[in-house]
């Protein structure tokens, strides 16, 4: 029972945060709501017994990505007039598409008999994750590191003042 209550609280944090991200007029408040949403998702990871991923979520999403977005908002803030429209004139079509997709997804999720396994969690998840990073998934792992490197260099070159 306690688990279910925790699940509902964390999902509400994640979903309300997400809702505020897309509806708030001021972008700075959006960025703060994004942090709220990330924290809610991290709580859901803990409920899923993926503590390592929850730590990564807090470190990378809250610690790096959200802060980077907040910096970008601060740098470009005076440009967006807070009284100007925050949404384009097709926002109702976008809402329709999103709501329709949600209905289709919920219908599908409810219909499919998911093959839930009752197998207990292995004791050394982080160990097997680490060994699959340098074993089965070595090539994607190296590609990701090259991608990060390229993205870093590219970001510096694109944003550099000429």
């Amino acid at each position: 029972m306690a688990l279910q209550i925790a699940f509902v609280i964390f999902s509400l944090i994640a979903l309300i945060g997400a809702f505020l991200v897309v509806t708030t007029r001021r972008l700075f408040h959006s960025a703060l709501a994004l942090v709220l949403s990330f924290v809610g998702v991290a709580g859901l990871y803990i409920l899923l017994e993926a503590e390592f991923l929850a730590a990564l979520q807090i470190l990378i999403y809250v610690g790096a990505i959200a802060i980077l977005i907040i910096f970008a908002v601060i740098v470009t803030r005076h440009l967006m007039d807070p009284k100007a429209r925050a949404f384009n004139e097709q926002w109702w079509r976008a809402a329709l598409v999103a709501a329709g997709l949600f209905l289709i997804l919920v219908f599908t999720i409810a219909k499919v008999p998911w093959p839930v396994s009752e197998a207990p969690l292995p004791t050394n998840v982080i160990f097997s994750m680490g060994s699959s990073f340098v074993g089965t998934y070595l090539v994607p792992f190296e590609v990701i590191s090259v991608l990060l490197m390229v993205a870093l260099v590219g970001a510096i070159i694109i944003a550099r003042e000429r």
């Binding site: 991200v21 897309v22 959006s30 960025a31 970008a72 925050a86 097709q90 926002w91």
Partner: peptide, 29 residues
């Protein structure tokens, strides 16, 4: 269902926002 809701909220943000940073936040969601 929670993940589907999160995805659809993010999709709405990507489609409806006028500010590029707002679109990026939708992608993150």
């Amino acid at each position: 269902i929670v993940a589907a809701a999160l995805f659809c909220i993010g999709l709405y943000g990507v489609l409806a926002r006028r500010n590029a940073i707002g679109i990026l936040m939708g992608v993150e969601l």
